[in-house]
Amino acid sequence: MTFEEFLTTRLAALLRYATVLACDPHLAEDIVQEVVARAHPRWARISATDVPEAYVKRMIVNELASWRRRRAARVVPMSLAALDMVTAPGADPAVQLDERDAMIRRLAALPVRQRIVVALRYYEGLSDEQIADLLGCRPATVRSHASRAFATLRTNMRAQTPTGTGGRHG
């Protein structure tokens, strides 16, 4: 597969992947652009692997982690504008959507490593071992990140009573 063919068939999927990991479409766009530009000169080697897309996805994960280090001042991962794109008031009146939007905000507020682990588990459907391979850590560390992410999500769910749902205590 040539680099051009790869971009034609997989760029949209890579952008979705990066958006889910970053919880920010603008940041995802910057990261994918950076990664793809760096992958281009190495494409002969990357395309020789069994799954070139997996290589590029790993680059995206690494870039996201280092991006955050470089922009340490960035506290809220998802920009307000980006959040509004997802959770525009009145976009759908259903109660389910209120809860989903609250979940998006909670996921976006997780620390980057925890966010990556949860996204890879639930969006990509990867096992802890596969995530550990991708992140270059032990599966126990992955489980630790996931466990802390869920503890945070649970705490935040208790702290935020969904409006219009009559409230729920977890």
């Binding site: 952008l15 979705r16 889910v20 479409p25 603008h26 995802a28 979940m103 998006i104 996921l107």
Partner: peptide, 11 residues
């Protein structure tokens, strides 16, 4: 569902 919605905002 949240992730599907986030993915839907991708450029």
């Amino acid at each position: 569902a949240a992730y599907d919605a986030i993915a839907g905002t991708a450029s």
